[in-house]
């Protein structure tokens, strides 16, 4: 097995967390007010992600206009320096990136009230400055925050979380080392509900364990939702104060 002790008998992980603890989670919104309608900066563990949302706006091509709802596009930019070792090739147009983009599109399509914005386009741009596991989940959180910042109507938060399964123990919010050592599941959870807008299992996982993995995943996602909500309210509160001094 690996020379690291992924999960010690005392119940500690490599970075000192317990099995059911999420990583440090810090976020801010309205970070790029001049460059986009909505923006967020997210640090989840060592993941650092900038998200920009432009729109709803006039589509750049008339063919993109849909008279019933807004068209959406997502572009994910994994920078070459985002990992510890600089990648020799550009990640643009990589198959994996295209897959992630499509999955993100599907995740948010149902949660945004696209029918309110006919004949418009919503463009989402994500820049990953640094990644350390559970990237897909962090992308979901970053996009949720930026969409809310843009004032785009949504049914609820979508919070992303990834869970690993170490032997029989689910580990919440995995980092790179853990991700490489075990099977992981990524969830996109809607608000405080137990509904999933995304479930992604890319490795083998015993089916009878899936339920416990989902349970801790949903709990973790709810925790992240609360953290995002807290930040959002703090921000909103400051804006309201500012507006009242007008």
């Amino acid at each position: 097995m690996s020379r690291f002790e992924i999960y010690s008998p005392e119940g500690l992980r490599l970075d000192g967390r317990r099995w059911n603890e999420v990583r440090r989670f810090e976020c801010s919104i309205n970070t790029h007010a001049h460059a986009a309608d909505g923006s967020s900066y997210l640090e989840q563990g060592n993941n650092k992600i900038i998200t920009l949302v432009k729109g709803p706006k006039e589509p750049s091509l008339r063919s993109q206009a849909n008279s019933l709802k807004a068209t959406m596009d997502v572009s994910v930019n994994i920078t070459r320096f985002s990992k510890f070792e600089r990648s020799a090739i550009s990640h643009k147009n990589e198959r994996r990136v295209l897959e992630i983009q499509t999955a993100l599109l599907r995740t948010f399509e149902k949660n945004i009230m696209l029918h309110l914005y006919p004949r418009t386009q919503i463009s989402i741009q994500v820049h990953i400055l640094q990644q350390d596991g559970g990237m897909f989940a962090s992308l979901i959180n970053g996009i949720t925050l930026a969409l809310i910042d843009a004032g785009i109507a949504m049914y609820d938060y979508v919070s992303g979380i990834s869970i690993g399964l170490f032997d029989t123990t689910p580990l919440l919010d995995v980092n790179t080392l853990e991700e490489n050592a075990m099977s992981t599941v990524t969830l996109g959870v809607i608000g405080k509900s137990e509904k999933l807008s995304l479930l992604s299992v890319e490795d083998k996982i015993p089916l009878d364990r899936l339920e416990s993995v989902l349970a801790i995943g949903i709990a973790g996602a709810h925790r992240l939702r609360d953290l995002m909500d807290e930040e959002l309210r703090k921000h909103a509160h400051k804006r309201v104060i500012k507006a009242s001094t007008k």
């Binding site: 309608d37 843009a150 004032g151 109507a153 949504m154 959002l232 921000h235 909103a236």
Partner: peptide
């Protein structure tokens, strides 16, 4: 469906987003 403040005008209930176009 948005982050904002609640507005009640007569019987109309709406949320004014903090930001938006």
């Amino acid at each position: 469906s948005a982050a904002g403040t609640i507005s009640r005008v007569n019987r109309l209930l709406s949320v004014i987003p903090l930001k938006g176009r």
